[in-house]
Design a protein around this nucleic acid. Structure first.
Ligand SMILES: [Zn+2]
Ligand SMILES: [Zn+2]
Ligand SMILES: [Zn+2]
Ligand SMILES: [Zn+2]
Lengths: 125, 125
DNA sequence: CCCCTTTTTGACAATCATTTTCATTTTCTC
DNA sequence: GAGAAAATGAAAATGATTGTCAAAAAGGGG
């Protein structure tokens, strides 16, 4: 399909951490692309709708995206300084979330889990 | 201290679910208060800074607050429809988060965990 | 290729939660 | 009560995100 969406996907795939729409737009423009900000937003929307990229919110509410290796359900360990992320899994957490939801009579239970810290790299400086 | 902050704290304490600053402002005005929106924001900021209220982000990035019973570290099971929340604990999750952070060389590890679903009440309608 | 329909794009304006400003009011201290 | 310090709120500013709409690109017969 759209060549622009592909451009955005690739820009994101080249990143190890989470990036905002504004970040990606700046990167792409700096790289010579004539892409528009609106298009970056639309591409990220489409990519996250289709589950190709993960999205989370920073403390100040900004949406940040990441093209993860795994398509399967997983969580992230994110560096507070450089935003580098590691994909992590926690079967125990999955079970706990489902169980606690059921125990309180909730249905259609989902969860969000993110772990933050300072990565070894950033800890040096 | 501030009388206004106390007003906001009480308004929030009367709620079972998470409310946004705009929600609380509307509630208070509807109740006859002459409080300003800025003050509601400032009160919520102060209350969350001091750990008296919990804050989380909705899917669209809006900050919502809750005056929980427990001052201790805990998480929430939140209804997707009415936003009613139940305070939950998960020792296994606490350990898992700390362990996975350490295993990858991260320091100062924290985490965010929220469980969502439809409460029994809302499931009926 | 050419014409026409459909989709994509991007500049610009519009939203909307949140933050800043700043002058006024209230509270505190002496 | 007088003056300094903190709190308040109306209005303007900010900044990410979304909506609008006309121009540009892509597709598909003929
Ligand atoms: Zn780092
Ligand atoms: Zn999970
Ligand atoms: Zn409910
Ligand atoms: Zn926890």
């Amino acid at each position: 399909m759209s060549t622009r969406r592909e451009t955005v996907r690739q820009a994101l795939t080249g990143c190890t951490g989470f990036r905002s729409a504004q970040d990606l737009y700046a990167d792409l423009r700096a790289g010579g692309s004539k892409i528009g900000l609106t298009t970056v937003y639309r591409a990220l929307q489409a990519l996250s709708d289709s589950g190709e990229v993960d999205v989370l919110r920073t403390d100040d509410g900004e949406a940040v995206y990441r093209a993860c290796d795994s398509e399967a359900h997983h969580h992230h360990l994110v560096c507070r300084k450089c935003s580098t992320a590691v994909e992590i899994e926690g079967p125990a957490v999955e079970e706990w979330a489902a169980e606690v939801g059921a125990r309180h009579g909730f249905t259609g239970v989902t969860h969000t889990v993110e772990v933050f810290g300072t990565c070894a790299e950033c800890a040096r400086s």
